[in-house]
Design a binder for these strands. Structure first.
Lengths: 348, 348
DNA sequence: CCATGAATAGAAAGCGCTTGCTGTACTGCT
DNA sequence: AGCAGTACAGCAAGCGCTTTCTATTCATGG
């Protein structure tokens, strides 16, 4: 039924071993023989059996990329960059690898299950993107899994995710705290003193770090904080819309709204507009990430640019062993403040 | 070093066969035995060897999802929906499958290579999303590959892609032609007579179909077409920006710009604004797809809503054999015209 | 009380490939 | 001419699992 190595070998009048070596190219084979084999492969339309190969060689060409939400460009951009470096078909890396993107939906158990599935497939490398969940139990479980993966020879890289100590994982962490601080400092510098903050889901590290940066900036400027000024929500537009209305209800005198990310900021803008407020005339808005659409918003969004593509590419190269990991296995990637039209001096 | 089935068997005092059967659960095993085995699995922290399993069983739990551009929400949304139905960890489907997203970048050869890789892995199913390339050679090559996959027992589903006759692939096709036609009819109805059209890459089916719909509408209304009114570009914002400037240069009297998709439309909006034109006061703009950010544009975008998530979910279910394929293996998914703020009556 | 069959467990034969080791035929020295 | 050295090619032993077929046990009914 299906063509096997042996069939090719028979047709090319060589042993299966030789065919295997031609296909893997890591052992000397005479040019004429090679040619004969390749011809047979072609004629028989032979396709290597991946599982068999992986079993015999005890490694596979699978590389896993875990993302929280594949429909979110934040992850899409990183995944795309990672994948382009992983090689994959047509990538500049040699050897064909199957870079696979796994959508965890941010659900801890799914993350774990995917990790197991990848472990089961004896993945060559795994890249985890996006913030982690703060839950200690889950964190420990993931750490244990990562350690096991590393032990089994799978290279593990974290991209835009806090380090996982003692797991052997390389971490490229975004400086969310610094970015958040810079952003709020910008608004404070403009003269804002009553700033609403729409945070992401409470249990995520990213959420906490960005919020901490915000608060650090406030504290540094001696601005007292009102607990009513912080609302938690999801990392999406609708959440931003609702949270903004809530913020406005709690304190209509706010002059600025800082959002957990750009999507949330867009929702905030919509809510402000629908409330008859002008941006930035009445209220300034700031986002985070600088996704492609942020510059197209009207007014364009003041935000913190995260080098998603660059970080992803680097993570990909490290995962493939084509770039030295950073010293200590940890690197911090900084964001860049992008001041645009959505922020201005406060009214009055 | 690594724990194998045999180790578990030894610990549980049963044969490897029994362990396998407990793990796969398709053969009667006494409750007490099962329990003992599961305990051993747990204690040894055993993880099934995927490749070995796939080799022996001649099938794998891999499901491939091919997308043109993973950083584009158009594909992200579909992929997400497909994946949620594939099962994957935590999905509602039983049995854990590794749903993997492969980023082809729209490059024909990559598409082919990924298909081969998936074939090599003996994937359980493959879903191809997005428009295909018109090139006959490549089309034939893909068709041949799909046929082979189908023969090998891999279920093949096309989502948002034209049917591939005689390959055994199920196709869920978007009615790009109808959507394009409806959209242009809307603008014609408002009174527009000079409409610019920013098309996607020339060689893609999606591009051609949308353009055909546009032209059909023009023809039906007896509006003569000016070749200067059509520009081809990529499916991204920047392309839309540049194309719009070009369009304006060619004919400053245009009263409407129809874009290949929403990203392009956003670029068009930016270009118009930068040219000092008001939307829709001076020029109306229309997009296609209705991606999440389109409603947030200012003014919000008139566009054709494609039920990406619904279609993806359906494709996923069909791929998993949990939903009957449509009669004839082909179904057309219609878009819905969304009239919003970016389109209005022409000036003058 | 034994034949009958259901329920359950085991033995063993691969699945298709990789790779360490073992030839075998040259090549180039001395 | 004789020997080491090199360049290929083949043999065969698995890799870790699934599954068919066979063996055993135990309950049942004639």
């Amino acid at each position: 039924m299906t063509v096997t190595l042996a069939d090719v070998a028979a047709r090319a009048q060589v042993s299966p071993a030789t065919v295997s070596r031609v296909l893997n190219g890591n052992y000397p084979v005479a040019a004429s023989t090679r040619e004969r084999v390749l011809k047979a492969v072609d004629e028989l339309d032979y396709v290597l059996n991946g599982p068999a190969s992986a079993l015999a060689a005890a490694t596979s060409d699978l590389v896993g990329i875990l993302v929280n939400d594949i429909a979110d460009p934040f992850f899409g951009i990183m995944a795309s960059a990672i994948q382009s470096e992983i090689g994959g078909p047509g990538g500049r890396a040699g050897g064909e690898r199957l870079a696979v993107v796994c959508n965890t939906g941010g659900v801890p158990e799914r993350e774990l299950t995917y990790l197991t599935l990848l472990q089961r497939q004896r993945a060559a490398a795994v890249v985890l993107t996006g913030g982690a969940v703060e839950d200690a139990t889950h964190k420990a479980a993931v750490a244990a899994k990562l350690r096991k993966l590393a032990e089994a020879g799978t290279r593990v890289v974290l991209c835009g995710r806090p380090p996982a100590p003692e797991t052997g994982a390389i971490a490229l962490t975004f400086d969310n705290r610094g970015g958040g601080r810079e952003l709020t400092e910008h608004l404070l510098g403009l003269g804002h003193r009553r700033l609403g903050y729409i945070a992401g889901p409470e249990e995520r590290t990213t959420t906490r770090h960005r919020l901490e940066g915000h608060r650090a900036a406030l504290a540094a400027h001696g601005v007292a904080e009102d607990p009513r000024w912080t609302v938690h929500g999801r990392y999406d537009r609708q959440s931003g819309y609702e949270a903004t209305l809530e913020l406005l209800r709690r304190d209509p005198s706010l002059t600025a709204v800082v959002a957990a990310n750009d999507s949330v900021a867009l929702g905030a803008c919509a809510a402000l507009r629908d409330s008859g407020l002008r941006i930035p005339g009445d209220v300034s808005v700031a986002g985070f990430d600088d996704l492609p659409f942020s510059i197209d918003a009207v007014p364009s969004l003041t935000t913190v640019r995260l080098p998603l593509a660059e970080a992803g590419a680097r993570a990909g190269r490290i995962a493939m062993g084509r770039e030295e990991p950073p010293p200590g296995g940890i690197a911090t990637v900084r964001g860049e403040l992008m001041v645009r039209g959505s922020s201005g001096v406060p009214r009055g």
